[in-house]
Design a protein around this nucleic acid. Structure first.
Lengths: 227, 227
DNA sequence: GATCCTTTCAAACGAACGTTTGAATTCAAA
DNA sequence: TTTGAATTCAAACGTTCGTTTGAAAGGATC
């Protein structure tokens, strides 16, 4: 396969990442993607079998990108204390606010799936493990009692993931009524603020404990992760 | 205007609330709405001037619904202490998890607008004030230093609003990997948890204060609110 | 009953959608 | 140079979209 061919295929994936990030899978059109990639519409069916196949490739690319680019190493997080783990986690996620951040676009694609999950994404989750859940579990376990009910553990993971999820769209913070200017200073300030607040919140949870404590299950060992 | 006519118009609005809640403005189709309302497609143009006009009516209906149904009274919130205000705020918003909650559907419509803001919604925000921002300001001000920089105040408001935003879709919590069972017990437990954590987080912010404190602006007095 | 206005209807429009198709181009190997 | 495979192309397809249209039905008034 020549470089030109690799170029078309990669261009389509790259264009699709951008379009799906901005408009979601349903809202992003084949025509828009092929225009952005300078490719023929038929190329999507030729290379990927169709729009579904292209999206599947984009989701696979996200796994690879997170593995290569994300500094959220589980061993490193396990080795530090709670507050440090939270700060690393929060600041890493906030990098998505930087429009040039590659991982940010994948994260924004995932947010569309939280509102209305597509079949492609459902199938994708059934066969791939997103490491972000295991990472989040490591972080929250540093605060929660050792024997925490499974449902509570999932709530804590969900909550931790949600702490940054709403912040990863720069345009949302820049528009009225917030009118915030997204620059490195604000991102740093957000990282500091959110980390402090997250530590305080999780500490409050940990200090109250669970009156009704049952045998716990590790969510990280579950077969089907999801964002 | 006869009852039959009112019936069609109201049926369309009711159906549109459901469809836009599930699929957003772009994703919700005129055909799906008219089918759900047992009305003719042309009725949308006749009664509302088109899909945009229908959506505008839905957004107006949301303002009315929040005014009538939401117990978040600013005077009452102002009169209680911080933790009580937070708990009232959080538990009120979590009612959206109850599928029969009318306000929940409007809240879910708003979440679509956080990912990709429609022109109709932009215009709507330019002329209507959503009281939820003023309410959120009252709550966070109970924790923040009196002279808090305007950008920080907006960040705190954004953060408080985001604490429940990700929780208002029951299907999201029910699906893998969370697999939580949404019932009144879980909603109550969530209310307790999130309230505790929110108080702790905001208290942490308040206790650290601002080293660099400038003249503050009240966001609630801004001309252009948004969700 | 006739007239006028309001409302609803079935059908169709033009545009955009994802996909398909036969032809053309490009590339690699013999 | 020839041949075959891979890739791209322009055009068209059937479907769905929001909107429009003329006709029909319903309701109110005279």
């Amino acid at each position: 396969m020549s470089l030109v061919v690799e170029g078309t295929r990669d261009s389509l994936i790259k264009a699709a990442i951008g379009v799906f990030s901005a408009k979601g899978f349903e809202g992003g059109s084949v025509r828009e993607i092929t225009q952005a990639a300078n490719a023929n519409q038929a190329a999507i069916n030729y290379h990927f079998g169709g729009k579904d196949g292209l999206y599947r490739e984009v989701l696979k690319a996200s796994i690879q990108a997170f593995a290569e680019l994300s500094p959220l190493d589980m061993d490193r997080l396990a080795a530090v204390d709670g507050p440090q783990a939270v700060e690393t986690f929060i600041r890493t996620q906030l990098k998505a606010l930087n429009r040039r951040d590659q991982l940010g676009r994948f994260m924004r694609i995932f947010t569309w799936e939280t509102l209305s999950r597509s079949q492609v994404f459902t199938d994708f989750l059934a066969e791939e493990k997103l490491p972000v859940f295991a990472v989040a579990e490591i972080v929250v376990r540093k605060f929660l009692p050792a024997e925490t009910e499974r449902a509570d553990l999932w709530i804590a993971i969900f909550w931790l993931l949600s702490q940054v999820e709403t912040f990863i769209r720069p345009e949302r913070l820049e528009r009225p009524p917030y009118n915030l200017k997204i620059d490195q200073a604000l991102i740093d300030r957000l990282g500091e603020r959110l980390s402090e607040m997250t530590v305080a919140a999780l500490s409050a949870w940990g200090s109250h404990g669970n009156a009704d404590q049952r045998r716990s299950f590790s969510p990280a060992s579950q077969a089907a992760p999801s964002p």
